[in-house]
Structures are given as C-alpha cells and as structure tokens.
C-alpha cells in the first residue's frame, strides 16, 4: 500500500511551481498592500499645508463666474477660495447654508474671496430647490471635474457633507472644516487670517 510512494526519490516541489506559487502569493499580498496603502493615505493627501491641484468645476446654469460657466482653481490664484461641499439631501448642510450665504454677501464686494459650492452626488431638481430655498448666489456646480477626470470630492477625499476647505492666495490649503459651521463668525474667523 505504501511501497510505490515511499520508494519514490525525494523530489520536492519543482522549482517552477514554487516560483509560480510565490509570485502569485506575493502578487496578491502586493495588491492588498497597495489597497491598504491607498486607504490609509487618502486621509492624509489633502491636508492643511498642501498645495491643491488645479481642477475645473462646471457650474449650474443659474450660476456664472466672470461670465464663464465653469471655474478653474488656477483662475482664482491671488484670491482666498472657500470650497463648500454640500448636498440637498444633507440635513446638516441646511444648518450652515444661510451662514455661508451671509458670509458670501459680506466678502463678495471685496473681490478678495471666492466661495465655491460643490454639490456632492445629488439630483439637479433637488439641488435647484435647495439653492433657491437658501437664496445662494455664490457659484455652485456639480461634483464633476473636467481636468482631473474624477470627482473633486474624490481628490479632496471628503468624509461626508458638509465639508469646507479654505485655500489661501497661493493655492495652499489652510483649514478644513468637517461638519457644518454654526455661525457666520466661525466662517469669518477662518477667512480673516488668510486675507492678511
């Protein structure tokens, strides 16, 4: 019963099989490692102090910026940029919407600050209702990116809505607000130092 096999010469696993096995195993681990690396890294790529890559937001038809129906970050060099991610289905966004608009009406005449609303996965109908409801006049567009070929929210790696990013005159991210603002003062407090 055992003779035929015990008599067989000691061969072990052929080298080529071993190589295949190891390549496969390490490849698999490599992929998981890359995925893990990405999962870990994406929460740190866009941090205060980082220069934000250029992107272009197509604006909703009700909005224009300097007569254009889209805005690129590079057009806004020299100005303080406030990027607000929101969605019409997001209850906390409604808390800050009026304050954001109020702050915008204060800063708009100075021409030093630009607010930009980015509508995160939303439907046009509801977005329109929302924007109208809060009388929002600063440029707003959908979360589509013409230059980066992926949603802007993806690049900023937002954790949810609302989230607000404050970019200084040199295009460097200075502050990230996760969650809604509870007053206009809070918004002013973040913009004021960037204007100095």
């Amino acid at each position: 019963m055992i003779e035929p096999t015990t008599a067989a010469p000691r061969r072990g696993v052929p080298l080529w099989v071993q190589i295949i096995v190891w390549v496969f195993l390490l490849g698999l681990l490599g992929i998981v490692a890359l995925g893990l690396n990405r999962a870990q890294k994406r929460s740190v790529t866009v941090q205060p102090g980082v220069e934000i890559e250029d992107f272009t937001v197509p604006l909703y038809d009700e909005y224009q910026y300097n007569g254009m129906n889209q805005v690129s970050l590079s057009d806004l060099r020299g100005k303080v940029v406030v990027i607000n991610f929101w969605a019409s289905w997001c209850k906390p966004c409604e808390q800050e919407a009026a304050d954001m608009q109020q702050a915008w009406t204060e800063y708009e005449p100075t021409g030093e600050v630009v607010f930009l609303g980015v509508d995160y996965v939303d439907t046009p109908t509801n977005a329109f209702i929302y924007l109208k409801k809060f009388g929002i006049t600063y440029p707003n567009g959908e979360d589509l990116n013409v230059t980066l070929k992926r949603p802007i929210s993806d690049y900023f790696n937002i954790q949810g809505v609302p989230e607000t990013y404050f970019i200084d005159r040199n295009g460097v991210l200075q502050y990230v607000q996760v969650g809604p603002f509870s007053s206009v003062e809070q918004i002013r407090a973040q913009i004021a130092p960037l204007l100095e």
Partner: peptide, 26 residues
C-alpha cells in the same frame, strides 16, 4: 446607492436614495 456602502438603490431607505428614485421617475 452612490453614497452608502453596498446598498441597492431600490431598497435604500435614506433621503438621498429617495431623491435618486425621484430622479429616475422624472
């Protein structure tokens, strides 16, 4: 559902999903 984890849109109970279903209806 674009924002929730692995939830088909027809059974997703969130407000956002309800809006997307409305979008489909429109």
């Amino acid at each position: 559902c674009p924002v929730c984890e692995s939830t088909p849109l027809d059974v997703c109970p969130t407000e956002a999903c309800r809006q997307w279903r409305e979008l489909i209806r429109e």
